[in-house]
Design a protein around this nucleic acid. Structure first.
Lengths: 206, 206
DNA sequence: GAGAGACTGGTACGAAGGTACCGGCAAAAG
DNA sequence: CTTTTGCCGGTACCTTCGTACCAGTCTCTC
Protein backbone atom coordinates (compact mmCIF):
# COMPACT_ATOMS: atom_id res chain seq x y z
CA UNK A 1 0.00 0.00 0.00
CA UNK A 2 2.32 2.69 1.24
CA UNK A 3 5.24 0.52 0.17
CA UNK A 4 6.45 2.66 -2.66
CA UNK A 5 8.79 0.43 -4.48
CA UNK A 6 9.19 -3.20 -3.64
CA UNK A 7 6.95 -6.10 -2.85
CA UNK A 8 8.90 -7.18 0.15
CA UNK A 9 7.70 -10.24 1.96
CA UNK A 10 4.84 -9.05 4.10
CA UNK A 11 6.51 -10.05 7.36
CA UNK A 12 9.44 -7.98 8.52
CA UNK A 13 11.75 -10.71 9.79
CA UNK A 14 13.95 -12.15 7.07
CA UNK A 15 13.19 -15.76 6.38
CA UNK A 16 14.31 -17.00 3.06
CA UNK A 17 15.53 -13.83 1.60
CA UNK A 18 18.96 -14.80 0.38
CA UNK A 19 17.93 -15.96 -3.04
CA UNK A 20 15.16 -13.44 -3.32
CA UNK A 21 17.54 -10.57 -2.73
CA UNK A 22 19.97 -11.92 -5.28
CA UNK A 23 17.18 -12.19 -7.81
CA UNK A 24 15.93 -8.73 -7.16
CA UNK A 25 19.45 -7.53 -7.65
CA UNK A 26 19.88 -9.49 -10.87
CA UNK A 27 16.65 -8.01 -12.21
CA UNK A 28 17.75 -4.47 -11.47
CA UNK A 29 21.13 -5.08 -13.02
CA UNK A 30 19.57 -6.59 -16.12
CA UNK A 31 17.25 -3.61 -16.43
CA UNK A 32 20.16 -1.18 -16.24
CA UNK A 33 22.01 -3.12 -18.89
CA UNK A 34 18.99 -3.15 -21.16
CA UNK A 35 18.44 0.58 -20.75
CA UNK A 36 22.06 1.32 -21.57
CA UNK A 37 22.30 -1.08 -24.46
CA UNK A 38 18.97 -0.80 -26.20
CA UNK A 39 17.23 2.16 -24.64
CA UNK A 40 14.29 2.41 -22.29
CA UNK A 41 11.88 1.17 -24.95
CA UNK A 42 13.49 -2.24 -24.80
CA UNK A 43 12.70 -2.67 -21.13
CA UNK A 44 9.97 -5.29 -21.11
CA UNK A 45 9.22 -7.91 -18.52
CA UNK A 46 10.27 -10.62 -20.89
CA UNK A 47 13.51 -9.03 -21.97
CA UNK A 48 14.48 -8.28 -18.39
CA UNK A 49 13.63 -11.77 -17.23
CA UNK A 50 15.61 -13.35 -20.04
CA UNK A 51 18.65 -11.20 -19.38
CA UNK A 52 18.52 -11.73 -15.64
CA UNK A 53 17.96 -15.45 -16.22
CA UNK A 54 14.91 -15.54 -14.01
CA UNK A 55 11.42 -16.68 -14.94
CA UNK A 56 9.05 -14.09 -16.34
CA UNK A 57 6.91 -14.00 -13.24
CA UNK A 58 9.84 -13.02 -11.03
CA UNK A 59 9.80 -9.53 -12.54
CA UNK A 60 6.22 -9.00 -11.53
CA UNK A 61 6.75 -10.64 -8.21
CA UNK A 62 9.51 -8.31 -7.11
CA UNK A 63 8.27 -5.13 -8.76
CA UNK A 64 4.90 -3.50 -9.08
CA UNK A 65 4.85 -3.15 -12.82
CA UNK A 66 7.34 -1.73 -15.25
CA UNK A 67 7.32 1.78 -13.82
CA UNK A 68 8.48 0.46 -10.49
CA UNK A 69 11.22 -1.53 -12.16
CA UNK A 70 12.41 1.41 -14.22
CA UNK A 71 12.41 3.56 -11.13
CA UNK A 72 14.62 1.11 -9.28
CA UNK A 73 17.02 0.91 -12.21
CA UNK A 74 17.11 4.69 -12.40
CA UNK A 75 18.11 4.97 -8.77
CA UNK A 76 20.86 2.49 -9.39
CA UNK A 77 22.10 4.43 -12.38
CA UNK A 78 21.99 7.74 -10.54
CA UNK A 79 23.99 6.27 -7.67
CA UNK A 80 26.66 5.33 -10.17
CA UNK A 81 27.13 8.89 -11.40
CA UNK A 82 28.97 10.36 -8.46
CA UNK A 83 30.89 7.13 -8.00
CA UNK A 84 32.11 7.27 -11.57
CA UNK A 85 32.99 10.96 -11.30
CA UNK A 86 34.94 10.19 -8.15
CA UNK A 87 37.18 7.75 -9.98
CA UNK A 88 37.92 10.43 -12.55
CA UNK A 89 38.58 12.97 -9.85
CA UNK A 90 41.08 10.62 -8.24
CA UNK A 91 42.84 10.24 -11.57
CA UNK A 92 43.19 13.95 -12.22
CA UNK A 93 46.80 14.92 -12.72
CA UNK A 94 47.24 18.55 -11.81
CA UNK A 95 50.15 18.80 -14.21
CA UNK A 96 47.53 19.04 -16.91
CA UNK A 97 46.19 22.33 -15.62
CA UNK A 98 47.38 24.26 -18.61
CA UNK A 99 46.24 21.81 -21.28
CA UNK A 100 42.68 22.89 -22.00
CA UNK A 101 41.95 19.90 -24.19
CA UNK A 102 43.05 17.62 -21.40
CA UNK A 103 41.00 19.57 -18.87
CA UNK A 104 37.93 19.30 -21.05
CA UNK A 105 38.51 15.59 -21.44
CA UNK A 106 38.63 15.10 -17.67
CA UNK A 107 35.37 16.94 -17.26
CA UNK A 108 33.57 15.15 -20.07
CA UNK A 109 34.79 11.79 -18.85
CA UNK A 110 33.42 12.58 -15.44
CA UNK A 111 29.98 13.43 -16.80
CA UNK A 112 29.58 10.83 -19.52
CA UNK A 113 28.97 7.20 -18.69
CA UNK A 114 31.78 4.91 -19.75
CA UNK A 115 31.16 2.93 -22.89
CA UNK A 116 30.49 3.57 -26.53
CA UNK A 117 27.67 5.03 -28.53
CA UNK A 118 25.00 2.51 -27.54
CA UNK A 119 25.56 3.16 -23.85
CA UNK A 120 25.54 6.90 -24.28
CA UNK A 121 22.45 6.88 -26.44
CA UNK A 122 20.56 4.59 -24.10
CA UNK A 123 21.63 6.66 -21.14
CA UNK A 124 20.34 9.90 -22.62
CA UNK A 125 17.13 8.40 -23.89
CA UNK A 126 16.52 7.26 -20.37
CA UNK A 127 17.51 10.60 -18.91
CA UNK A 128 15.08 12.49 -21.07
CA UNK A 129 12.30 10.00 -20.47
CA UNK A 130 12.68 10.62 -16.75
CA UNK A 131 10.36 13.55 -17.23
CA UNK A 132 7.55 11.06 -17.45
CA UNK A 133 8.30 9.22 -14.21
CA UNK A 134 8.04 10.99 -10.88
CA UNK A 135 10.22 8.41 -9.14
CA UNK A 136 12.96 8.78 -11.70
CA UNK A 137 13.22 12.53 -11.60
CA UNK A 138 13.49 12.45 -7.83
CA UNK A 139 16.29 9.89 -7.99
CA UNK A 140 18.08 11.87 -10.66
CA UNK A 141 17.77 15.15 -8.83
CA UNK A 142 19.49 13.53 -5.88
CA UNK A 143 22.17 11.94 -8.03
CA UNK A 144 22.83 15.23 -9.77
CA UNK A 145 23.56 16.97 -6.52
CA UNK A 146 26.39 14.59 -5.76
CA UNK A 147 27.66 14.66 -9.33
CA UNK A 148 27.79 18.44 -9.35
CA UNK A 149 29.79 18.43 -6.16
CA UNK A 150 32.29 16.02 -7.66
CA UNK A 151 32.57 18.07 -10.85
CA UNK A 152 33.20 21.07 -8.65
CA UNK A 153 36.07 19.20 -7.03
CA UNK A 154 37.58 18.39 -10.40
CA UNK A 155 37.27 21.99 -11.55
CA UNK A 156 38.99 23.13 -8.40
CA UNK A 157 41.80 20.62 -8.86
CA UNK A 158 42.28 21.81 -12.42
CA UNK A 159 42.05 25.43 -11.38
CA UNK A 160 39.09 26.14 -13.61
CA UNK A 161 36.39 28.42 -12.28
CA UNK A 162 33.30 27.28 -14.11
CA UNK A 163 29.85 26.49 -12.83
CA UNK A 164 29.58 22.69 -12.54
CA UNK A 165 26.04 22.78 -13.83
CA UNK A 166 27.31 24.60 -16.88
CA UNK A 167 29.91 21.90 -17.49
CA UNK A 168 27.26 19.21 -17.30
CA UNK A 169 24.88 21.20 -19.47
CA UNK A 170 27.45 21.70 -22.21
CA UNK A 171 28.35 18.04 -22.17
CA UNK A 172 24.74 16.93 -22.20
CA UNK A 173 23.89 19.37 -24.94
CA UNK A 174 26.83 18.29 -27.04
CA UNK A 175 25.72 14.70 -26.73
CA UNK A 176 22.18 15.58 -27.75
CA UNK A 177 23.49 17.35 -30.83
CA UNK A 178 25.84 14.50 -31.63
CA UNK A 179 23.12 11.88 -31.27
CA UNK A 180 20.64 13.80 -33.36
CA UNK A 181 23.14 14.45 -36.10
CA UNK A 182 25.02 11.17 -36.04
CA UNK A 183 28.27 12.68 -34.83
CA UNK A 184 30.73 11.16 -32.41
CA UNK A 185 29.42 12.14 -29.00
CA UNK A 186 32.47 12.09 -26.76
CA UNK A 187 34.64 13.95 -29.24
CA UNK A 188 32.03 16.62 -29.80
CA UNK A 189 31.48 17.13 -26.10
CA UNK A 190 35.19 17.57 -25.44
CA UNK A 191 35.43 20.14 -28.20
CA UNK A 192 32.60 22.26 -26.84
CA UNK A 193 33.70 22.04 -23.24
CA UNK A 194 37.18 23.03 -24.31
CA UNK A 195 35.81 26.12 -26.04
CA UNK A 196 33.90 27.10 -22.92
CA UNK A 197 36.73 26.40 -20.51
CA UNK A 198 39.28 28.20 -22.62
CA UNK A 199 37.13 31.32 -22.75
CA UNK A 200 36.63 31.40 -19.03
CA UNK A 201 40.24 30.61 -18.38
CA UNK A 202 41.33 33.72 -20.15
CA UNK A 203 39.29 35.79 -17.73
CA UNK A 204 40.77 34.21 -14.68
CA UNK A 205 44.32 34.49 -15.84
CA UNK A 206 44.13 38.20 -16.45
CA UNK B 1 13.23 0.88 -54.73
CA UNK B 2 15.47 3.87 -54.92
CA UNK B 3 12.51 5.94 -53.82
CA UNK B 4 13.70 6.73 -50.33
CA UNK B 5 10.70 8.10 -48.66
CA UNK B 6 7.31 8.17 -50.26
CA UNK B 7 5.08 5.83 -52.16
CA UNK B 8 4.37 8.26 -54.91
CA UNK B 9 2.13 7.10 -57.69
CA UNK B 10 4.39 5.13 -59.97
CA UNK B 11 3.85 7.40 -62.98
CA UNK B 12 5.36 10.81 -62.90
CA UNK B 13 2.44 12.85 -64.22
CA UNK B 14 0.01 13.92 -61.52
CA UNK B 15 -3.40 12.39 -61.88
CA UNK B 16 -5.57 12.57 -58.88
CA UNK B 17 -3.16 13.90 -56.39
CA UNK B 18 -5.11 16.70 -54.83
CA UNK B 19 -6.72 14.73 -52.04
CA UNK B 20 -3.82 12.36 -51.76
CA UNK B 21 -1.39 15.20 -51.16
CA UNK B 22 -3.68 16.69 -48.57
CA UNK B 23 -3.86 13.37 -46.78
CA UNK B 24 -0.15 12.85 -46.88
CA UNK B 25 0.21 16.30 -45.42
CA UNK B 26 -2.37 15.63 -42.73
CA UNK B 27 -0.57 12.43 -41.77
CA UNK B 28 2.77 14.18 -41.43
CA UNK B 29 1.22 16.96 -39.41
CA UNK B 30 -0.51 14.51 -37.12
CA UNK B 31 2.75 12.65 -36.62
CA UNK B 32 4.56 15.84 -35.67
CA UNK B 33 1.84 16.69 -33.20
CA UNK B 34 1.98 13.24 -31.67
CA UNK B 35 5.74 13.37 -31.32
CA UNK B 36 5.59 16.75 -29.64
CA UNK B 37 2.70 15.92 -27.37
CA UNK B 38 3.29 12.35 -26.32
CA UNK B 39 6.78 11.49 -27.50
CA UNK B 40 8.03 9.27 -30.28
CA UNK B 41 6.83 6.14 -28.51
CA UNK B 42 3.26 7.22 -29.10
CA UNK B 43 3.67 7.28 -32.85
CA UNK B 44 1.71 4.27 -34.03
CA UNK B 45 -0.17 3.82 -37.25
CA UNK B 46 -3.44 3.83 -35.41
CA UNK B 47 -2.75 6.90 -33.35
CA UNK B 48 -1.57 8.82 -36.38
CA UNK B 49 -4.54 7.76 -38.45
CA UNK B 50 -6.97 8.74 -35.72
CA UNK B 51 -5.37 12.13 -35.24
CA UNK B 52 -5.17 12.84 -38.95
CA UNK B 53 -8.73 11.61 -39.35
CA UNK B 54 -7.84 9.20 -42.09
CA UNK B 55 -8.42 5.46 -42.16
CA UNK B 56 -5.72 3.22 -40.76
CA UNK B 57 -4.65 1.95 -44.14
CA UNK B 58 -3.87 5.44 -45.41
CA UNK B 59 -0.78 5.58 -43.22
CA UNK B 60 0.63 2.46 -44.81
CA UNK B 61 -0.45 3.56 -48.24
CA UNK B 62 1.47 6.81 -48.15
CA UNK B 63 4.46 5.68 -46.13
CA UNK B 64 6.65 2.62 -46.15
CA UNK B 65 6.31 1.71 -42.53
CA UNK B 66 6.74 3.70 -39.37
CA UNK B 67 10.38 4.56 -39.92
CA UNK B 68 9.52 6.28 -43.16
CA UNK B 69 6.75 8.20 -41.45
CA UNK B 70 8.95 9.27 -38.58
CA UNK B 71 11.62 10.34 -41.02
CA UNK B 72 9.17 12.53 -42.89
CA UNK B 73 7.96 14.10 -39.66
CA UNK B 74 11.55 14.68 -38.59
CA UNK B 75 12.33 16.56 -41.77
CA UNK B 76 9.28 18.69 -41.21
CA UNK B 77 10.33 19.44 -37.66
CA UNK B 78 13.89 20.25 -38.66
CA UNK B 79 12.66 22.63 -41.33
CA UNK B 80 10.74 24.47 -38.66
CA UNK B 81 13.83 25.14 -36.56
CA UNK B 82 15.46 27.81 -38.65
CA UNK B 83 12.08 29.28 -39.48
CA UNK B 84 11.25 29.65 -35.80
CA UNK B 85 14.69 31.09 -35.02
CA UNK B 86 14.20 33.60 -37.80
CA UNK B 87 11.04 34.96 -36.20
CA UNK B 88 12.97 35.46 -32.98
CA UNK B 89 15.82 37.11 -34.83
CA UNK B 90 13.38 39.53 -36.41
CA UNK B 91 12.01 40.38 -32.99
CA UNK B 92 15.35 41.13 -31.42
CA UNK B 93 15.48 44.60 -30.00
CA UNK B 94 19.06 45.80 -29.94
CA UNK B 95 18.23 48.07 -27.03
CA UNK B 96 18.45 44.95 -24.92
CA UNK B 97 22.13 44.46 -25.64
CA UNK B 98 23.17 45.20 -22.11
CA UNK B 99 20.54 43.11 -20.36
CA UNK B 100 22.12 39.68 -20.12
CA UNK B 101 18.97 38.01 -18.88
CA UNK B 102 17.12 39.38 -21.86
CA UNK B 103 19.90 38.30 -24.22
CA UNK B 104 19.82 34.80 -22.80
CA UNK B 105 16.05 34.71 -23.20
CA UNK B 106 16.30 35.64 -26.87
CA UNK B 107 18.80 32.88 -27.47
CA UNK B 108 16.89 30.22 -25.58
CA UNK B 109 13.65 31.18 -27.29
CA UNK B 110 15.35 30.78 -30.63
CA UNK B 111 16.59 27.29 -29.80
CA UNK B 112 13.64 25.87 -27.90
CA UNK B 113 10.43 24.93 -29.66
CA UNK B 114 7.46 27.05 -28.64
CA UNK B 115 5.07 25.41 -26.23
CA UNK B 116 5.11 24.02 -22.74
CA UNK B 117 6.67 21.03 -21.04
CA UNK B 118 4.97 18.34 -23.12
CA UNK B 119 6.20 19.85 -26.38
CA UNK B 120 9.73 20.29 -25.09
CA UNK B 121 9.89 16.81 -23.65
CA UNK B 122 8.53 15.19 -26.78
CA UNK B 123 10.88 17.22 -28.89
CA UNK B 124 13.95 16.13 -26.98
CA UNK B 125 12.89 12.52 -26.76
CA UNK B 126 12.61 12.59 -30.49
CA UNK B 127 15.92 14.39 -30.90
CA UNK B 128 17.79 11.82 -28.88
CA UNK B 129 16.07 8.92 -30.57
CA UNK B 130 17.25 10.26 -33.92
CA UNK B 131 20.46 8.37 -33.31
CA UNK B 132 18.56 5.24 -34.20
CA UNK B 133 17.28 6.44 -37.57
CA UNK B 134 19.67 7.26 -40.37
CA UNK B 135 17.12 9.41 -42.19
CA UNK B 136 16.43 11.44 -39.12
CA UNK B 137 20.00 12.26 -38.28
CA UNK B 138 20.62 13.42 -41.82
CA UNK B 139 17.59 15.69 -41.72
CA UNK B 140 18.60 17.06 -38.35
CA UNK B 141 22.18 17.68 -39.37
CA UNK B 142 20.88 19.81 -42.23
CA UNK B 143 18.40 21.62 -40.03
CA UNK B 144 21.08 22.33 -37.46
CA UNK B 145 23.28 24.06 -40.00
CA UNK B 146 20.57 26.60 -40.73
CA UNK B 147 19.68 26.99 -37.08
CA UNK B 148 23.29 27.69 -36.12
CA UNK B 149 23.51 30.36 -38.79
CA UNK B 150 20.41 32.04 -37.44
CA UNK B 151 21.68 31.86 -33.86
CA UNK B 152 24.88 33.43 -35.11
CA UNK B 153 22.84 36.30 -36.53
CA UNK B 154 21.10 36.82 -33.23
CA UNK B 155 24.38 36.80 -31.34
CA UNK B 156 25.76 39.37 -33.73
CA UNK B 157 22.70 41.57 -33.34
CA UNK B 158 23.04 41.37 -29.58
CA UNK B 159 26.77 41.95 -29.76
CA UNK B 160 27.61 38.70 -28.05
CA UNK B 161 30.59 36.75 -29.30
CA UNK B 162 29.74 33.18 -28.43
CA UNK B 163 29.93 30.07 -30.54
CA UNK B 164 26.38 29.29 -31.75
CA UNK B 165 26.92 25.60 -31.21
CA UNK B 166 27.82 26.38 -27.62
CA UNK B 167 24.60 28.32 -27.15
CA UNK B 168 22.57 25.42 -28.50
CA UNK B 169 24.53 22.92 -26.43
CA UNK B 170 23.96 24.82 -23.20
CA UNK B 171 20.28 25.14 -23.93
CA UNK B 172 19.92 21.50 -24.88
CA UNK B 173 21.89 20.41 -21.86
CA UNK B 174 19.87 22.57 -19.54
CA UNK B 175 16.70 21.06 -20.89
CA UNK B 176 18.03 17.55 -20.41
CA UNK B 177 18.86 18.36 -16.80
CA UNK B 178 15.54 19.99 -16.25
CA UNK B 179 13.62 17.08 -17.73
CA UNK B 180 15.54 14.50 -15.78
CA UNK B 181 15.14 16.35 -12.52
CA UNK B 182 11.63 17.67 -12.97
CA UNK B 183 12.67 21.31 -13.13
CA UNK B 184 11.18 24.01 -15.33
CA UNK B 185 13.07 23.69 -18.59
CA UNK B 186 12.86 27.15 -20.14
CA UNK B 187 13.72 28.92 -16.92
CA UNK B 188 16.69 26.67 -16.26
CA UNK B 189 18.02 27.09 -19.78
CA UNK B 190 17.84 30.86 -19.58
CA UNK B 191 19.72 30.84 -16.30
CA UNK B 192 22.58 28.75 -17.65
CA UNK B 193 22.86 30.63 -20.92
CA UNK B 194 22.90 33.86 -18.96
CA UNK B 195 25.81 32.62 -16.88
CA UNK B 196 27.73 31.67 -19.99
CA UNK B 197 26.97 34.84 -21.89
CA UNK B 198 27.78 37.06 -18.95
CA UNK B 199 31.17 35.44 -18.51
CA UNK B 200 32.09 35.88 -22.14
CA UNK B 201 30.71 39.38 -22.21
CA UNK B 202 33.14 40.48 -19.58
CA UNK B 203 36.03 39.43 -21.78
CA UNK B 204 34.80 41.37 -24.76
CA UNK B 205 34.10 44.52 -22.86
CA UNK B 206 37.58 44.74 -21.40
C1' DG C 1 -18.79 7.03 -71.97
C1' DA C 2 -16.12 3.23 -70.98
C1' DG C 3 -11.97 1.36 -69.18
C1' DA C 4 -7.89 1.46 -66.43
C1' DG C 5 -5.57 2.46 -62.73
C1' DA C 6 -4.93 5.19 -58.57
C1' DC C 7 -7.10 5.75 -54.11
C1' DT C 8 -10.18 4.21 -50.13
C1' DG C 9 -11.24 2.02 -46.00
C1' DG C 10 -12.94 -1.88 -43.42
C1' DT C 11 -10.99 -6.00 -41.79
C1' DA C 12 -7.79 -9.74 -40.54
C1' DC C 13 -3.60 -11.95 -38.92
C1' DG C 14 0.59 -12.83 -36.50
C1' DA C 15 3.69 -11.02 -33.02
C1' DA C 16 4.72 -9.01 -28.71
C1' DG C 17 3.81 -7.25 -24.35
C1' DG C 18 1.65 -6.48 -19.36
C1' DT C 19 -0.34 -8.86 -16.06
C1' DA C 20 -2.83 -12.47 -13.54
C1' DC C 21 -3.26 -17.11 -12.05
C1' DC C 22 -2.26 -21.38 -9.79
C1' DG C 23 -0.26 -25.76 -8.81
C1' DG C 24 4.14 -27.05 -6.79
C1' DC C 25 7.91 -26.84 -3.62
C1' DA C 26 11.38 -25.64 -0.32
C1' DA C 27 12.51 -23.84 4.07
C1' DA C 28 11.31 -22.44 8.63
C1' DA C 29 8.55 -23.41 12.89
C1' DG C 30 6.77 -26.63 16.16
C1' DC D 1 8.81 -35.28 11.08
C1' DT D 2 5.06 -32.57 9.82
C1' DT D 3 2.81 -28.52 8.88
C1' DT D 4 2.55 -24.07 7.37
C1' DT D 5 3.99 -20.22 4.94
C1' DG D 6 5.51 -17.81 1.32
C1' DC D 7 8.36 -18.11 -2.91
C1' DC D 8 8.77 -20.26 -7.67
C1' DG D 9 7.84 -20.60 -12.33
C1' DG D 10 5.16 -22.18 -16.26
C1' DT D 11 1.25 -20.66 -18.68
C1' DA D 12 -2.80 -18.24 -20.32
C1' DC D 13 -5.50 -14.07 -21.33
C1' DC D 14 -6.29 -9.76 -23.17
C1' DT D 15 -4.73 -5.71 -25.44
C1' DT D 16 -2.16 -3.23 -28.82
C1' DC D 17 0.57 -2.96 -32.74
C1' DG D 18 2.58 -3.39 -37.58
C1' DT D 19 1.30 -4.79 -41.72
C1' DA D 20 -1.25 -7.03 -45.40
C1' DC D 21 -5.33 -7.77 -48.05
C1' DC D 22 -9.11 -6.79 -51.06
C1' DA D 23 -13.35 -5.41 -52.71
C1' DG D 24 -15.24 -1.14 -53.85
C1' DT D 25 -14.97 3.81 -55.62
C1' DC D 26 -13.63 7.55 -58.12
C1' DT D 27 -11.23 10.24 -61.78
C1' DC D 28 -8.47 10.77 -65.53
C1' DT D 29 -7.47 9.26 -70.37
C1' DC D 30 -8.70 7.75 -74.66
Amino acid sequence: MSETSTVEPAHSAPRRQARGTARREAIIRATCELILNDGPVSVTHRAVAARAEVPLAATTYYFNGLDDLIGAAGERIAEGWAEHARTIRDKVNTDHRGDMRRVATYLVDAVLPPGGLPEIRGFYEHLVSAGRYETLSLAYAKGRGKLDAMIGDICAALNVAINPRLVVAITDGAVVSALSEGREAHEHAVTLVEIAVSSLRSILED
